[in-house]
Amino acid sequence: MAMDAKLVNPFIDAFTSVFPQMGFPAPVRKGMSLKDKIANSLGVTVIVGFTKQLRGNVVYNMSEDTAKYIASTMMMGMPVPEFDAMAQSAISELSNMLTATAATNITGLGLEVDISTPSLGVGAGAQVKISDEQYLVVVMDLGGHPVEIDIAVSS
């Protein structure tokens, strides 16, 4: 299952188009690398799966602090001292929006895709195996908060 570089842009484009709409500063791409099979959770990981002409998973991986910052901004600046059920729901919904937008972008490449509901994992030290082979890591900076997108999809 080889990762196709052209499948990365739909995810980055989704990131850069969705966040500003919700009042975030424009995200900046910080780096891109290849990793093997397993991602180490930064604290909060959201997995969303793909089927049809593209199969695989995407994982949004961030620290709990970053997750709280995102949830707070999504909720119009409401303080989020704990990563509670409401904050989890916000991150889950955000991941759904990002992935649905990426899926629409991928459809623009001529590939029919469908996405699953997001699964949100909380707990530092978790390991997430998302691929049997290599997967692509894109680090995005969101107002000083890093978010890692782990992409393991292939046609």
Binding site: R55, N57, T117, S119, L120, V122
Partner: peptide, 23 residues
């Protein structure tokens, strides 16, 4: 209904919580 399954993702570790708020 066109239900399909995605490839698996596997989480391992201790004291991990998995939430799916909309399910």
């Amino acid at each position: 209904r066109e239900m399909r399954v995605t490839p698996p993702g596997t989480i391992s570790g201790s004291d991990i919580r998995i939430a799916n708020p909309e399910l």
